[in-house]
Write a protein that binds this DNA or RNA. Structure first.
Length: 636
RNA sequence: GGUUCCAUAGCUCAGCUGGAUAGAGCAACAGAUUUCUAAUCUGUGGGUCGCAGGUUCGAAUCCUGCUGGGAUCACCA
């Protein structure tokens, strides 16, 4: 094994990976007026990628007098090198052959910098290999940093609204995608340096809850969650279904007696009753309010259990019953300043044709609100309450148009916050049997799904013979952790905006690109670390002159990307990017694990470096999974 | 019909602002356990990147058109 002499001294940070002060100043001056990828970053924290990029920019400028915007990509496996600079654009402007340009730059880089080990040129690709000690130092720096916590806290504040359930039925699979997305995006934004408020807007009023109320009043016989042995939300959901049954029966008999179907739908007594109840509710009828509070109370108890079980939470809960009348003042404001216009029937509209949208009603002729009216008011309220710089709505893509309209109106009303509004739109969750339809009873209930998955996790653990006492509290925690890990990862690994297929069998899979695979990887590492804890000081002392093998280097390579992955995931509101990264990291560790031993390694330097390395891998996995809302076990 | 999103291996999905021979997992087949957890690892087969043009040194990626699918186009929420 090669044993390179230590060329790194203790001032490495200020001298080696970072640019020398004088050099730095020259670069800044040099690139100030020009657009250069990396030079622009000099004020910020420098990572190895930026350093290399800047050095190439310098080289090109010195050699050819050209200002090139350099971007780098990891060198493909089939070529030698760490990073590749693609310079086809230079071939044209410099009118020289690719080989000549590549060699000129490569030679210059090697002669004038100490980071580079070698280079090779293939067509317009300059493959650069960095010296081993660069990677050791990258690792050393990583070990000194706290995982995922060096991003600063200076990006402002953001509100993430998600979940937003209706109080007439329990949560289903579609809600789970919403909840997991919302929670994860909140965590990611937080990690990226935002101050986050997690908000939930409960849809607790309206015709849907009145339907449940009417059905309960008619058929409920004073049933309670206790007497029925049902979670509150399921009990109320049951009466929502009862309503629908009775409604359909009434329609059928009306049609049999000669009504048209359209007429029957309007005149069915139970529907009339529901509408009357809504009216009573709006008039604050005490009896109605009492019933409403009772049923909603049950539902909230049920939701609370579900939220606790799936591990999501909120900092602020808004209730539509409090906010549904808001927005009318905005309508007045809009009329006053000419953003809105009024028709003869007194209804109020906005013309959004310039924005590529349509005319939109914002207030009915009788002065009552529509959906968008409420949302105008609620949006103002949210920004007023929290003074957030940004606001994210996690809502399904069936409301894409609604949010386009909402944001366009806010802009027209001159709300400064309008540019900070973002609709995180996600696709539907399909089942192998097709679309989920609540009316056809093909919805997958959230509570049921979670408990099924916990049971499966238990069964699989039993089958593997991994767990001794299946009934212990610790085991139960583990099964829940695995079940939720599988479910959350399955729903989050797909890019939010894409429609996705939920295959029950695949979702509880523990192999391949799954949550439990990553959880298992973490448990494996912790198992080693239990045998070989080592103080940080010792690791830092020893890594200096160690020669990394390819598997170790690959891990370092991935680990150093972690913070930028968080930034990217935050910028695109995409937990999927983080999920993919974490999978890649876990997989890479397992390759390392299959080929190298940590505790049985005879070379002490190697052993301690590996202990440090895998500790960092475990921390990164844990942190990243945490951002997905997934816990990882110490053993499994 | 207008608007909008999507289309990549048998299946489920990656593929960042255009870069080298398009990648994973599952499924199939063949291997690996005296060694820190085999819920792991290694290998094999599998592709008209929906179709057709365009932009250029270079396109799964950008533009246009077409086909297929989803969503939406309520004085519902």
């Amino acid at each position: 094994m090669a044993e390179p002499k230590p060329v790194i001294d203790c001032n490495i940070n200020s001298d080696f990976l970072f640019c020398k002060t004088k050099e730095l100043i020259d670069w800044k001056r040099h690139f100030k007026s020009k657009k250069c990828n990396f030079a622009a970053k000099l004020n910020e924290q420098m990572d190895i990628l930026s350093v290399i990029g800047s050095k190439i920019e310098i080289a090109i400028n010195t050699l050819f007098g050209a200002n090139e915007k350099v971007s780098l990509q990891p060198t493909r496996k089939e070529f030698e090198g760490d990073y590749t600079f693609v310079f086809f654009s230079l071939v044209k402007s410099l009118k020289k052959s690719p080989i000549e340009i590549g060699n000129t730059i490569g030679t210059y880089l090697l002669e004038n910098n100490k980071e580079f080990e070698s280079y090779n040129v293939v067509q317009g690709f300059l493959n650069l290999k960095l010296k081993n000690e660069v990677w050791v130092e990258v690792l050393n720096d990583l070990l000194k940093e706290k995982t995922g916590e060096d991003l600063g806290n200076k990006k402002g504040s953001v509100m993430v609204e998600y979940s937003s359930p209706n109080t007439n039925k329990p949560l289903h699979l579609g809600h789970l995608r919403n909840n997991f997305l919302g929670f994860s995006v909140s965590k990611i934004m937080e990690a990226a340096g935002y101050q986050v408020t997690k908000a939930c807007l409960v849809n607790d009023r309206g015709i849907h809850i009145c339907k449940s109320m009417v059905a309960y009043q008619n058929f409920g016989a004073n049933e309670t969650p206790e007497s029925a042995g049902l979670k509150g939300d399921h009990l109320v959901g049951k009466y929502y279904v009862e309503f629908d049954k009775a409604y359909k029966n009434q329609i059928n008999s009306l049609v049999e007696n000669g009504s048209t179907e359209e007429d029957a739908k309007k005149k069915a007594p139970i529907m009339v009753e529901a509408q009357e109840m809504l009216l009573k509710w709006e008039q604050n009828d005490p009896e109605t309010i009492e019933l409403w509070k009772k049923l909603n109370g049950w539902v909230y108890d049920g939701f609370a259990k579900t939220y606790k079980q799936i591990g999501v939470e909120f900092d602020k809960t808004y209730y539509e019953s409090d906010t549904y009348l808001l927005g009318k003042t905005l309508v007045e404001e809009g009329l006053k300043n000419g953003v809105f216009y009024q028709k003869e029937d007194k209804s109020v509209w906005i013309d959004l044709t310039e924005e590529g949208l349509d005319h939109k009603l914002v207030l009915r002729g009788d002065g009552t609100s529509v959906y968008i009216t409420q949302d105008l008011g609620t949006t103002d309220l949210k920004f007023d309450d929290f003074k957030s710089d940004k606001s994210i709505w996690v809502v399904g893509n069936e409301q894409d148009y609604h949010f386009q309209v909402l944001f366009a109106i806010m802009k027209k009303l001159g709300r400064a916050y309008a540019h900070g509004c973002y609709h995180l739109s996600y696709g539907m969750v399909d089942l192998p049997s097709g679309k989920m339809k609540s009316r056809e009873g093909t919805v997958v209930d959230a509570d049921e799904l979670v408990s099924d998955m916990i049971a499966t996790a238990k069964a699989m653990s039993a089958e593997k013979g991994k767990i001794e006492d299946l009934e212990s509290e610790e085991s139960k925690r583990l099964f829940r952790m695995l079940a939720l890990g599988a479910l959350k990862y399955y729903l989050l690994k797909v890019e939010p905006k894409k429609r996705m297929l939920f295959n029950p069998e695949e979702s509880i899979d523990f192999q391949g690109n799954t949550g439990p695979f990553i959880q298992y990887t973490h448990a494996r590492i912790k198992s080693i670390l239990r045998k070989g804890e080592i103080s940080d000081d010792k690791i830092f002392d020893l890594v200096g002159d160690y020669f990394l093998n390819p598997e170790e280097k690959e891990l370092v390579f991935l680990l150093k990307d972690y913070t930028s992955i968080i930034q990217a995931a935050a910028a695109e509101y995409s937990p999927a990017q983080l999920a993919n990264y974490t999978y890649e990291l876990a997989k890479t560790f397992n390759v390392f694990y299959a080929q190298h031993s940590v505790m049985n390694e005879e070379n002490e330097d190697s052993k301690y470096l590996r202990l440090g390395l895998i500790k960092k891998v475990a921390e990164t996995i844990k942190h990243a999974m945490g951002l997905l809302g997934i816990d990882v076990p110490e053993r499994m």
